[in-house]
Design a protein around this nucleic acid. Sequence first.
DNA 1: TCTGGGGTCCTAGGACCC
DNA 2: TCTGGGGTCCTAGGACCC
Length: 416
Amino acid sequence: MSRIIFHIDVNSAYLSWEAVYRLQHGEALDLRTIPSAVGGDPVKRHGIILAKSLPAKPYKIQTGESLMAAFQKCPHLTVVPPRYELYLKSSNALIELISDYSAHIQRYSIDECFVDFTDMVMLYGDPVETAHVIRKRIKKELGFTVSIGISSNKLLAKIASDLKKPDAVTTLFPEEIPTKMWPLPVEELFMVGRATAPKLHFLGIETIGDLANYDLEVLKGSLKSQGVLIWNYANGREDSQVKKSNRLAIKSIGNSSTIPFDIDNRKEAHLMLLSLSEMVGMRLRDSQYLARLVSVSFKTHLFNSSGHQRKFEIPTDHTSEIYRVACELFDELWDGTPLRHLGVRVAEFCENDFIQLHLFDSSTDERKQRLDRVIDELRGRFDPKVIMRGAFVGSGIKPLTGGVGEDDFPLMSSIL
DNA sequence: TCTGGGGTCCTAGGACCC
DNA sequence: TCTGGGGTCCTAGGACCC
């Protein structure tokens, strides 16, 4: 039996949510009506564009480009800093409203979700009409607009929602593929990115239709399994389930940061690793997991990147353990080239519901654990900066680096 | 174009085992 | 002895997503 899937996408999410918040708090100006953007650190004119308004489009402002470049294209661009707690609240409100219509919701990212509407058709009738009802309710009750795509699978629904923006409902059922999807440039296809597009062009493939009708064996030859995947996508074939997102699905936790200055000595590098390990450790403990693997990665001033990873002898969630191994890994990997980016990540989780007591130094282990808990507690209760290791004082390196705390839902996958 | 930060998955090569 | 092949695990690197 054929399914009915919705993909719901918030238009210019961060910017819309910011604009709505400001209107609700008495500001007269609607950011959506002027060239504006949400981006990092406008004061220092540093960071990147995270979201832009429609009036910013004619200036060719691109999501992901540096603020410097954006100001050059549009000197009077209004830039506001991001506020992730607000976006999380807005996202939750959206999901709550959609829950009135179906319990089968998959949050794909903070501003996108899939809804399996198949069983709801009996209850609500025509899906397109229902989608319009949902769209209008969101606009009226929450103050921002969405684009809704409807089809028989997640891939087509996602592409459909992109066809018309803002504030729109669009279908892309299999019989509509040749007219609505095949004329699109191939880079609009999910999973065709910066590296794959040139390879496809080399084969003479320009549109999604070209790809759909291309010889699969030839494609396999140059793109392996990726070739098979995108060929199926180009033909609209995809059958993954709308899965309720569960926190348990999380696979890794990491933080990384571009340093304001190039690091050229081990001491500063270690301090940076400590700062990152603190955040990773906090998030790991919050997740209730222990990690079996830790990895360190960096980018040099020339943007060459490399990484190194290792397993813990015993799965852990201690900041001090993560930091110790991170330093080991770093010292083995680094040849002294100046660095501008450093990252720490933990993975391979197991449950922490029994306490790991090992025979040799259970007392120090317990002490570490207590220390972590007390610090987490204080940081949660007050400002995270209340606890600061002495080594950071006057170092120019923040005692805690990286974002994404407590309520993150870890589901951004390159697979639908 | 002078390039953030959070993730997931795939592949290739080497080590090691039988 | 200088020579198999298959399976699994580990690691590094790259591609993609939002």
